[in-house]
Design a protein around this nucleic acid. Structure first.
Length: 203
DNA sequence: ATGACGATTTACT
DNA sequence: GTAAATCGTCATA
């Protein structure tokens, strides 16, 4: 039986969490579709108050970023570019607004529902490797939106993480985070992590 | 009340 | 490679 991640599993620094989440399985339960899941293959750590790329930079605290200030294991979902959602796992302890952005999954269960959710106006089906290979793509595939921001992944029946074999550290590659060019020096820090041989990593 | 801006994706030249 | 899509959020007033 797969074991679910508990609150204390999340109570570590964001860089460690970004590494530890690789290989773990994100599970979504939907009333209509049932169970969807995917193996996490790409993450980014956001280091909070000192991190120019983080929404919580400078301890900015608003209605949107409030979940980042909760305990580790809280979900932080935000809406951006007028059309996309991105899903984060809050790290550390309450009061320290650090988190891990989940950037890509290898889809495991519910591929049909994911294809449906991801189907655009184009007639062509979305290839499996593009179903969840990006932070907004995986949210669209799994129907994750702001309604889930602030929920506790350790207890919610709708969204949680199941323990799976960790990724061999030698297979974890790292590099600069994507889409944060505005963040100066912080844009160059190698805080993005991915499973080197995965076909489901973004770009 | 207003204006600028995205932790992105897609389509197109 | 470039550009459009599209609107919630946030800082400023």
């Amino acid at each position: 039986m797969p074991r679910r991640w508990t609150r204390r599993d999340y109570a570590i620094d964001p860089e460690s969490l970004a590494r530890a989440l690789l290989g773990q399985v994100l599970v979504r339960h939907l009333p209509a579709t049932g169970r969807l899941s995917g193996r996490i293959v790409e993450t980014e750590a956001y280091l909070g108050v000192p991190d120019r790329a983080a929404h919580s930079f400078g301890a900015r605290r608003t209605a949107r970023t409030e979940p980042m200030y909760a305990h580790g294991g809280t979900a932080y979902v935000y809406f951006t570019y007028g059309m996309h959602h991105c899903f984060n796992v809050v790290a550390g302890v309450a009061g320290d607004p650090v988190a891990v952005l989940v950037r890509a999954l290898e889809p495991l269960e519910g591929l049909g529902a994911m294809r449906l959710a991801r189907a655009g106006r184009s007639a062509k089906p979305v290839p499996d490797r593009l179903l969840c290979s990006g932070p907004a793509r995986l949210c669209q595939a799994m129907s994750i939106d702001r309604a889930l921001s602030g929920i506790d992944l350790a207890t919610s029946p709708d969204l949680f993480i199941e323990r799976a074999p960790p990724v061999d550290p030698a297979q974890i590659h790292r590099g600069p985070r994507i889409g944060v060019d505005y963040a100066g020096d912080w844009a160059l820090r190698p805080l993005r992590f991915w499973v080197s041989d995965s076909a489901h990593v973004s770009r």
